[in-house]
Amino acid sequence: MWVRPFGPPPTSAPRRHAWASTAAFVELWRTRQAITAVPGLGPRPADSGGAAACDDLDARVRALAHVLLDLGGAHLAATEP
């Protein structure tokens, strides 16, 4: 499943919420873009609106990874990325 790189849901409530909401946004993106054969967000759309949305979601995923890996983003754990 595509969510496997996220690892298991964290045990702390704020991190679990960030994990779950980011996973839900990625699932929605993958569904709307009909992505089934490639991992992650798939190819970046060519249109400016789709590209901007893809970039925003990519930033959210990277922020989540930063928090989950404790790479100095602990302040993000209490808020939604």
Rank of each mutant, 00 (worst) to 15 (best):
M1K: 05
M1S: 14
W2V: 09
W2E: 13
F6Y: 10
G7E: 02
P8M: 05
P8R: 12
P8W: 05
P10V: 01
T11E: 14
A13T: 09
A13F: 03
P14R: 03
P14F: 00
P14T: 01
P14H: 01
R15Q: 12
R15D: 07
R16S: 11
R16P: 08
H17K: 13
A18C: 11
A18T: 00
A20C: 07
S21E: 01
T22L: 06
A24W: 11
A24H: 15
V26N: 04
E27N: 14
E27F: 12
E27V: 06
W29P: 01
R30A: 02
T31P: 05
T31A: 12
Q33I: 06
Q33D: 08
Q33L: 09
A34N: 15
A34Y: 02
A34I: 08
A34S: 14
I35D: 06
T36R: 15
T36N: 14
T36V: 11
A37E: 10
V38M: 10
V38A: 15
P39D: 14
P39W: 07
P39K: 05
G40D: 09
P43N: 09
R44N: 08
R44K: 15
R44E: 15
R44T: 06
P45T: 11
P45F: 14
D47A: 06
S48I: 04
A51Y: 04
A51P: 00
A53M: 07
A53G: 13
C54N: 11
D56H: 08
D58M: 01
D58F: 03
A59L: 09
A59H: 04
R60L: 00
R60C: 00
V61C: 03
R62K: 11
R62L: 09
R62N: 10
A63P: 01
A63L: 13
L64W: 10
A65Q: 10
A65V: 07
A65H: 11
A65K: 05
V67N: 00
L68W: 10
L68A: 09
L69E: 15
L69N: 15
D70L: 11
L71D: 14
L71E: 12
L71N: 11
G72D: 08
G73Q: 03
G73W: 00
A77G: 05
A78F: 00
T79A: 12
E80V: 03
P81C: 05
P81L: 02
P81V: 04
P81K: 00
